[in-house]
Simulated scan of single mutants.
Amino acid sequence: MDTVQLDGGRPAAKEFRTRNDELFARRKELQEQLAVLRAKADAGELDTLSEPALRRAERQFEDVTLEILNVNFGLVRRYVAMFTSRSSKHIEDFESAGKVGLLWAISSYDPKRGPFAGWAFKPIQREVLRAVRDADHPNLNPGDFEKRPAILAAERAFLEEAGPDAPVDHADVARRAGVTEAQVLRVLDAPRLDSLQTPAPGEDETSWEERLPALSPGVEEEVLLQFDLRAIGGRGLPSLDPRERYVLTRRFGLDGEPEQSLRVIGERLGLSREGVRQIQQKALAKLAGPLVDA
């Protein structure tokens, strides 16, 4: 489905808002239906008519959510262009991160709070900037990364006054940016590790990757994982939105089918591997509470 473009003037913008309003109204209607039907299912009161109705409502809910995602994907592209450099080789991952933010905005949106585009701005921005930091500035902590634009602007202002060849006065830059001198040093002189295959310091020439501890789970961890997955399938999935349920079901084979890789799931959903991983992370975080009680 094509995304409605917002640069065609007032008629296009009005059409966009009208379509969004209709889709969100339909989504809310289906959400209410699902709440009633799932309450019946939890109470063991589903009859031969209610069970197919539940499955049908779930499919329709997934379809309308996907349609809202497609209609509003232009917001993700616009915000990615605002927050990142077009020359970055990670644009696809940034857009996938933006989709995660867009899905969060869809699930939490209340039309009484104003136009959806304004509501979606913050969650999309949050996920995109997190992806930018992870991809291009992995050695900066979130607080320093948030201050990075102000620090770079203060550095430019300082050099315009002192001259391009002048040594940077970190204290002056900190004062201009309203941050600490330590933050300025961490941002302007951030260390870079370009590859895990880079030789680590020492007499031998082993790489950083070879020095990292193995992350493969042991037997006890595998047993606990399988226990948690049974709890997820039995109790946790109804608390997730359709996209999260789909990812966990496919990823861990909760329906008895073979487990699928992040890449394969991403191809089905039109997301990058990183985008699927982020949805998986978000879904598992939601399930952390119910699993404790399982």
Results as ranks from 00 to 15, higher is better:
5 Q>P: 04
6 L>W: 01
6 L>E: 03
6 L>M: 05
18 T>P: 01
24 F>R: 07
29 E>I: 08
30 L>I: 15
37 L>Y: 08
40 K>G: 08
42 D>Y: 10
44 G>F: 14
44 G>Y: 12
57 A>G: 05
60 Q>W: 12
68 I>G: 07
74 G>Q: 04
74 G>L: 03
80 V>C: 08
81 A>D: 15
91 I>S: 01
95 E>Q: 10
103 L>A: 12
107 S>C: 06
113 R>L: 10
114 G>T: 09
118 G>M: 09
122 K>R: 14
125 Q>F: 03
126 R>G: 02
131 A>N: 04
131 A>E: 05
131 A>K: 02
146 E>Y: 12
158 F>D: 02
158 F>W: 09
159 L>I: 10
161 E>P: 05
177 A>Q: 07
188 L>V: 02
190 A>D: 12
193 L>D: 07
193 L>K: 04
195 S>Y: 02
200 A>M: 03
203 E>F: 13
206 T>N: 14
211 R>C: 02
213 P>D: 02
215 L>T: 12
216 S>Y: 11
219 V>N: 03
226 Q>S: 06
231 A>L: 06
244 E>Q: 15
249 T>W: 04
253 G>R: 06
258 P>E: 04
265 I>R: 02
282 K>W: 06
285 A>F: 13
285 A>D: 13
292 V>W: 15
293 D>A: 14
